[in-house]
Design a protein around this nucleic acid. Structure first.
Lengths: 341, 341
DNA sequence: ATATTAACTTTACGCGCGTCAAGATTTTTA
DNA sequence: TAAAAATCTTGACGCGCGTAAAGTTAATAT
């Protein structure tokens, strides 16, 4: 098996002209079945593939797709990313995964590097509050971008995410119906815009149900939500800030910290008779099944959010990178009942 | 601010010849300070950067570095990956992160795609037992590769990882000294070669200490370790397979499942008087702090493993992609005492 | 000041592939 | 079976940049 230098050499070895071979690699169906067979036969005998750099050099757009998430240490984003990657590959694209790791500087650098990759499109889950809005705006002007998970008003050609109202309405309604109305446990300055929408939804639903909203804000910044939830919960429990036996955490990672604190304080969480507290949450974190007790949570519709995101991006790409109007697609949550509430 | 097409145009705008500008981008220190200043001045006025595809087309090797991990949903690998990425960027490389998601097919595809990227080097944490050894061997013959975390005998130019013996000796010794000798809880067919080394270390240390090793193997395949640990623990607890009040889990993710099962069964875990079981583990998983109870574990020396991995890769690259002999660097674990044992 | 060296400019070629035009060949249609 | 259509081959140019050679200018050494 000889090493093949370039398409010229491969073409002559396969007995097909180079322009036709080039055409084949661009779209195997664009050549006659017989010639396709001859090329693929040669492809099996020799180990050749086009130089991706030469291929992409002249193309206005490549077959690359960028996937950017704010924080890969959160398994939620890994799940989504995995699905997105797979979908891109199936559609013949080359996905590249990036994590902003919670830092604005990194998010900007990633977008910067992405631009020079001339990607066909980008799936971006922005950091949110701490995103550099103008940087993202500039990026979106140059690259077909679909935002997901976290919406930034007006940015990107479209947004696909979850309906935060649906999360909170289900959890609050459930907790209230089967027990007492929950307090809302969240970070004082949430990194993610979804958090704000969840708080607003909580207030609205509580009022609608005739209860007084009770929001507990805990300090802490960054993306170490478990730690923040844990510390905050220790304080909340010590100072007896809870008004009822119910708590709704803004997200699962906070809840993981909250439950750890409860355990340490000897507070039994759940709906059994010997329990003094019920804790529910939002997101459907992969680990929520293994907390103690297992966590009742309103789960993202992962599959639909991820699926619709890529679909939208593909439409966007086929549409030349522009939509007439910016669409926002929201999927409702699925309430997962476990032991914690 | 005009859009600049190519280096030619940028060169004339900056008043420097194109070859010199090219030299500058290759290494800013290779040009005279005065010309460097003029170029960088122009760089601020105009928004130009070399076309990465044209740049890489002729280069035998690019400035790309591939980082491949077996399973990104495990925050352990995310932590490492983050460190590796940062180190590569600091050294002027462009890292690309890939996850095999526990699948051999994907690992092969990733390596396949990586080859056509002509990377300067690759940091590979292989799947382990289910890796396609011949595929990786072939890959390593073409690309300078440093293996980390999971060793495959003889593959790659070097290996950097953790000393599994050190993990288990510390946990077993600690548990035995402060209580009863532990049983060893693991998967029947572990995906990762580290698991086998840990089992062997357990047997050796137990015998050295004069105790009879007791290994509990639980069924389950894939990378859903928490689920497997949970199911396995339920069975173990129901059938009272434990001989002492001590369990050492092969890794933290199994332990997370084990602790969840204990909680459900009402078994109090820890070293307090009212506890009937002690559970320890290995890895230093980021979530180990938030299990109930918090998990005593022998932690990877993340920083050193990651740091040494990139250092080794850089040496390898500077050395032309080949080492005289394959080195294996192992870092000892750090015992983290928490509440579970 | 002159010789030496370092850095720069100009000119030009090559990389591997996309793509176009013109002509030859094959396949399809009537 | 001939004409029309589709596909192929041949030949050639261009993309943006790396890089080499030869000559020029600037910095450093003597």
């Amino acid at each position: 098996m000889t090493k093949i230098k370039n398409m010229e050499e491969f073409a002559s070895l396969s007995g097909i002209s180079r322009p036709t071979v080039s055409k084949y690699f661009h779209d195997p169906d664009s050549v006659r079945p017989t010639t396709r067979a001859r090329i693929e036969e040669a492809l099996e005998r020799f180990d050749y593939r086009p130089n991706i750099y030469a291929v992409n050099q002249n193309r206005k757009l490549t077959k690359n797709i960028g996937i950017v998430v704010p924080y890969l240490a959160d398994p939620f984003f890994v799940e989504i990313a995995r699905y997105l990657e797979q979908s891109c590959i199936s559609a013949g694209y080359r996905p590249s995964l990036f994590s902003s790791h919670g830092e604005q500087k990194l998010e900007n650098e990633i977008l910067d590097g992405l631009q020079s990759m001339k990607p066909a499109g980008v799936l971006l889950a922005p950091l949110g509050r701490i995103s550099d809005r103008s940087a993202i705006e500039k990026f979106c002007a140059n690259v077909p971008t679909v935002l997901f998970d976290s919406n930034l008003d007006g940015l990107g050609a479209a947004f696909v995410g979850s309906d935060n109202f649906s999360f909170v309405s289900q959890t609050v309604e459930y907790m209230t119906r089967t027990g007492e109305p929950p307090s809302f446990f969240e970070m004082r300055t949430p990194a993610n815009p979804n958090a704000n929408k969840r708080r607003k939804a909580y207030v609205e639903i509580m009022e609608r149900l005739g209860f007084e909203p009770h929001i507990i804000k805990v300090d802490g910044k960054g993306w170490a939500f478990e730690e923040i939830g844990h510390k905050g919960a220790m304080k909340v429990l010590a100072e007896r800030q809870l008004r009822t036996n119910s708590v709704l955490c803004s997200n699962d990672r906070l809840a993981i910290g909250f439950l750890a604190a409860c355990y340490e304080q000897g507070i039994r969480v759940g709906r059994k008779d010997d329990c003094t507290l019920r804790v529910a949450s939002n997101d459907g974190h992969p680990f929520a099944k293994f907390t103690c007790p297992s966590l009742t949570t309103a789960a993202h519709d992962y599959d639909n959010v991820a699926g619709r995101s890529v679909e939208t991006l593909f439409e966007l790409i086929e549409n030349g990178g522009k939509f007439d109007s910016r669409s926002e697609t929201l999927f409702p949550a699925r309430l997962v009942l476990r032991d914690s509430a």
